[in-house]
């Protein structure tokens, strides 16, 4: 264990950065550990990977990690990622967003990046709340939840991020919780290996802004909730939530397909152009 930890220090920026901005009990630290571990096993060097993030608690992850890191504007991380990938297709782009970031302000960019099957790994840390701004209702907040801007209970339905990512054309869609830490790492590993748009939704906990208004006494209780309500699914299974008992949600690989990615289509086009030019 000690040995493994030492390896991981290479991926952390040593200067000035720690302690992190995240509150005690936040799921972000566990996620970052899983991300580093997945990257370490991926075979990519630190110089081949660009980590892009949006705004919010999840957006702060990039500053701690020793890669080329791009902390963008709120909701726009995938647009910057698209430009990076097209300008240098050799770069491996991993984009970290929150639920509000990816699906409210950035919802349009999310569905279009998926529609293009753009070669980006999008990780959505879904803590069901806007944490950094003090606990407002988000598109990940379940109906009925009390937040600082839904004091009488949320009237809206939350997004099912995986269903959304699936129908708009992503090559890989998976969900884990922070509690299922080894699954989380495995799914991120799989997503990094995929061509095209790969999405990993990570159900995380915000004990400070979500938990305390929703009757959770601690971060541990929230992790226990994740453990008790996440149901592992088989990737051959249809993933409809309707098949599960009320309140339960599926985790695991939802979509794993090999549709041609944007960069693959671009490379095919470029090769054809080169052949044409050579023929002349």
């Amino acid at each position: 264990m000690t040995e493994e930890r030492q390896d991981f220090y290479e991926y952390l920026r040593d200067t000035k950065k720690f302690p992190s901005v995240w509150c005690p009990g936040c799921g972000m630290g566990i996620f970052v550990r899983a991300l580093i571990s997945a990257i370490d096993k991926s075979g990519y060097s630190q110089d081949e990977i660009v980590l892009v993030s949006g705004i919010g608690c999840s957006g702060r992850a990039t500053a701690y990690l020793d890669f080329c890191t791009l902390h963008t504007t709120h909701g726009r991380a995938l647009t910057f990622s698209t430009g990076l990938k097209l300008a240098n297709p050799k770069l491996k782009i991993i984009t970290i967003m929150g639920d509000g970031d990816a699906l409210a302000i950035g919802g349009n960019h999310f569905i279009h990046a998926a529609r293009r099957n753009m070669d980006i790994t999008a990780i959505v840390i879904n803590n069901s709340i806007y944490g950094m701004t003090g606990g407002q209702v988000s598109p990940g907040t379940p109906q009925g939840t009390i937040t600082t801007t839904s004091p009488y209970g949320n009237l809206e339905n939350p997004f099912d991020i995986c269903e959304l990512a699936k129908v708009v054309g992503s090559n890989f869609v998976a969900r884990s919780t922070v509690f299922n830490v080894y699954l989380m790492e495995k799914l991120i590993s799989q997503a990094i290996k995929k061509k095209g748009f790969s999405v990993v939704e990570i159900i995380s906990q915000c004990p400070v802004h979500y938990g305390k208004r929703s009757g959770f006494k601690s971060a541990v209780e929230m992790l226990e909730w994740q453990r008790d309500n996440a149901v592992m699914i088989n990737k051959s299974q249809e993933t409809g939530q309707q098949d599960l008992p009320p309140g339960k949600f599926p985790i695991g690989v939802m979509v794993d397909r090999e549709a041609k990615s944007y960069i693959e289509r671009l490379e095919e086009f470029n090769n054809k152009q080169r052949e044409k030019a050579n023929a002349l």
């Binding site: 698209t82 770069l91 960019h109």
Partner: peptide
């Protein structure tokens, strides 16, 4: 891109890639 917000984000990303 899907809108001008995205266009502007994409050109910044590309510029960072050199």
């Amino acid at each position: 891109m899907e809108d001008e917000i995205a266009s502007m984000g994409a050109i910044i990303g590309a510029s960072l890639a050199g």
